[in-house]
Design a protein around this nucleic acid. Structure first.
Lengths: 333, 333
DNA sequence: CTGTTAGCGCGTTCAT
DNA sequence: ATGAACGCGCTAACAG
């Protein structure tokens, strides 16, 4: 520690050139004679020179770091997205500042402000709480923002996601086809657009197509925790439902185990389909049938979009909808 | 986007003071008359001025960001640590740059170099691959480094962890007491100190105390993936083992399900104890008995230590060993 | 192809 | 209590 760091000026002096030339070779500018380039390169290595990214950032107004807002790193769904983001970021020589938001509106705002103060070149937002205030903050930010793994119900911001309406509809259809006409809908807060404007809509669409009347005693909301799902089992059991579509895997795992422990046989007495196909779905017994989302790719694509935006390139499409699927496992017949 | 950002200079002009004064009020310097402080504050709000952290970093040589090296965000164990780190970082007004290393030595080095170039004020290293090269890089870094959730077998670097020897020994003891004398040891790469210098040592200690001779046909290594564990079930079944201690929960979950699917009844025919008590342990059926580690706290404490180091404060102790426990669930009798 | 000169936005002496 | 001036390390015109 504490050794004086060598600057571009030191290598310029040692190499007998100007700092501009050093800057050029460091940045791969072609306008440098091979000989001097080699000479400078040698000095750089001898002195073990490393460009100071902060100074560079101040001068160039680019930090090559992007901010990533995530509800909770600990969440299997979002961390998978984060992995895709980081890998692509790396490819393009960006670093990511990761900030947990807990899906709290005020914290999201605070965190965004922070990221912007650090002069990030762009930000990726993950979370389902996109509201008017946040939207305004995004608009006023002088850095592009892309939404990953969720929706912008006003479709103003670049986003990458799947067709949540269709996916939910398909899943519910699958349940209906097996003979269920009392399918529970289990999601997070219904105030969030992704739940009431997309998932619930898909659910209702499936019912409508099968001429089943909507019954709101079959609608359940919960936090996305294992324990919450386990707890919910009682309520679901007390309802008329014989199957359920759940919008979160951890929640689904809790529900599954809660039902099982209460003596309900899944899938014979009750069928379940969950939404994210995270690692958890294979670990439970029975394994969980699930909607599949390309989480890693969604993260990767959103970061790729962001690089274009940061580069002032035109986007082919502002919303990228990736394909989803349904993988049948043992929680359905 | 693209609105000219307001600088400290703008505020100074509008408020009719010098930028030095603005800087003082922004940084809470006491030497400012209340009246002018208020005046400046008003202008700051009116102009919506936000200090540029990059310029600040260049001038002060502090970026208030720390680098966090993590094997994989997607890993339940490490992401829990990361959460603790981020929460404490936030308390002290730091941000974290998260970098995935995949436990690859070369990538860890590259990533560290990167972080250092960005002038992070400190770094937290998570991973089990602390080798000579990395150690050297840490020493030469002009930022303090603390190791979280793993060991520095030379005990030179500040680190926070648990007593892996004792924890493993306890777990194996528990198995032995139930009557097992053929306990399998399942871990990751035995080249990693945490596995051969700590966990394996604890395993051997337990055997020795019970006068059971060590049998290396009971030693298994694997990658930390569910599928790898599932695959491993066959080999374990073919061995003489009747119980196992496993060093990773995802691996343990795979092993458990592999055994179960092969017709082995856990815990009646085979008992399992896993190591990290992540969320997974409650999701499997039967639930997994596990060593418990305070992951979140380990992250939090390591970040707290780092803030002291960055502040040039003395550390009370360079290695913090947090308490562990063993929680009995249904994979043991 | 290379060097000179300005800043980038802010913290920090050093005067006053 | 406040201001002037310098410098942090680098990029980016602009000359030549």
């Amino acid at each position: 520690m504490e050794k004086e760091s060598v600057t571009i000026y030191d290598v310029a002096r040692e190499a007998g050139v100007s700092m501009a030339t050093v800057s050029r070779v460091v940045n791969g500018n072609s306008n440098v004679k091979q000989v001097t380039k080699d000479k400078v390169q040698a000095v750089i290595e001898r002195l073990d020179y490393h460009p100071n990214a902060v100074a560079r950032g101040l001068a160039s107004k680019k930090t090559t770091t992007v901010g990533v807002i995530i509800p909770d790193v600990t969440d299997a769904y979002f961390s998978e997205l984060a992995r895709g983001i980081d890998d692509v970021a790396n490819m393009y020589h960006y670093n990511i500042i990761l900030a947990n938001s807990d899906e709290s509106g005020s914290k999201e705002l605070k965190v965004l402000e922070n990221l912007l103060a650090k002069q990030v070149d762009g930000v990726i937002y993950m979370g389902n709480g996109l509201n008017a205030e946040l939207r305004k903050a995004f608009r006023h930010a002088n850095a592009p923002v892309v939404i990953a793994g969720s929706v912008d119900d006003e479709e103003k911001h670049p986003a990458v996601n799947i067709d949540y309406v269709a996916a939910t509809c398909d899943a519910v259809n699958k349940l209906i086809r097996t003979g269920h006409d009392k399918v529970a809908f289990v999601s997070g807060d219904l105030k969030q657009p992704i739940n009431y404007k997309y998932r619930l809509k898909g659910y209702q669409k499936a019912l409508a197509e099968a001429n089943i009347t909507f019954d709101d005693s079959l609608i359940f909301t919960s936090e996305y925790f294992y324990a919450a799902g386990y707890e919910l089992a009682k309520k679901i059991q007390a309802s008329a439902a014989t199957a359920a579509i759940i919008s979160d895997d951890e929640l689904a795992a809790g529900l599954l185990n809660g039902l099982t422990d209460a003596g309900v046989n899944v899938p014979n007495d009750f069928e379940l389909i969950t939404a994210n196909n995270t690692k958890l779905t294979q670990i439970t017994r029975p394994e969980l049938t699930s909607i599949t989302q390309p989480m890693y790719d969604m993260g990767a694509v959103s970061m790729r979009m962001l690089t274009k935006l940061m580069n002032k390139e035109q986007l082919d499409q502002t919303t990228v909808v990736l394909p989803y699927g349904i993988i049948a496992r043992s929680s359905t017949k």
